[in-house]
Design a protein around this nucleic acid. Structure first.
Lengths: 131, 131
DNA sequence: TATTCATCTGAATAGACATTCAAGCTTAAA
DNA sequence: TTTAAGCTTGAATGTCTATTCAGATGAATA
């Protein structure tokens, strides 16, 4: 990842160097856009977040939690997965702060971390219904 | 995937059967939620969409396209990837209708398919800035 | 028409990820 | 203080995914 080219053509005009495999069609525009796009760190952070939503099983879990706070074994029954698999997925969602949990006796109850998650979920669901 | 359990405990009260590995804590609530969650097909569709956004390189490409319509070699320069890798990623984004393209001479120019994409992008970016 | 540029494509390799299985921990009940 | 329920965890396995590389296409230029 983050391939560094070995002695490719190097174009530079007034600032930092800009390397590429072949020719650039719009040098100035590229320099401009390059300074405006998201940083690598932010992109990784966003990718991690979207990645959490990029699995059918996790989406089902989230859509269940939109409706109610549920414990692990109930969630497993709802989405028809093993409790172990559910637990693994919930840990992932927990680490990214998409869900929160609370213990009550021997049960652990999960719920959505905040309203944003439900909103995002709904937006994408609606977006895909349009086309 | 979609594991089907072999002779686990089966709980049923008034409608279709509900199987699970262990006990259910809240049978009625589970039945209720189960009827309300997203369908498997919709979940897969949504997962595919989120999956498209779940990669730092693709997010950089999208964030560049928020700023301007660009051809492949320019995009490759902006995000510092090989043109081949960019082309592969653009095809993925194209297939999921996140971007559209148009040919002009030997160049192919890409742009965002619609405003939703930019909005979603912005929302998540802002959401992550809060915490 | 031959050549070159811009882009695309398929196969192959390497890395990431989800489920399963077996075992561990915590809490409540016996 | 045993025993069991509910949940978590780590390792292993199989699957998916991204890049690279080599080669093919399509359009413009010589």
């Amino acid at each position: 990842m983050n391939k560094v080219d070995k002695s490719k053509k190097t174009v530079s005009s007034d600032g930092d160097a800009l390397t590429c495999d072949s020719s650039l069609v719009h040098l100035e525009q590229v320099r401009q856009v390059q300074s405006e796009i998201v940083t690598t760190e932010k992109a990784q952070q966003m990718a991690q977040f979207f990645g959490a939503m990029a699995d059918p099983h996790r989406l089902k879990l989230l859509s269940a939690l939109v409706k109610a706070e549920l414990c692990v074994c109930d969630l497993a029954a709802v989405v028809k997965m093993s409790e172990s698999a559910v637990s693994h997925q919930l840990r992932l969602l927990r680490n990214l702060r998409l869900v929160k949990h609370r213990r009550e006796g021997r049960n652990v109850y999960y719920s959505l971390a905040d309203a944003h998650i439900a909103n995002l979920y709904r937006e994408v669901a609606e977006h895909l219904d349009e086309a």
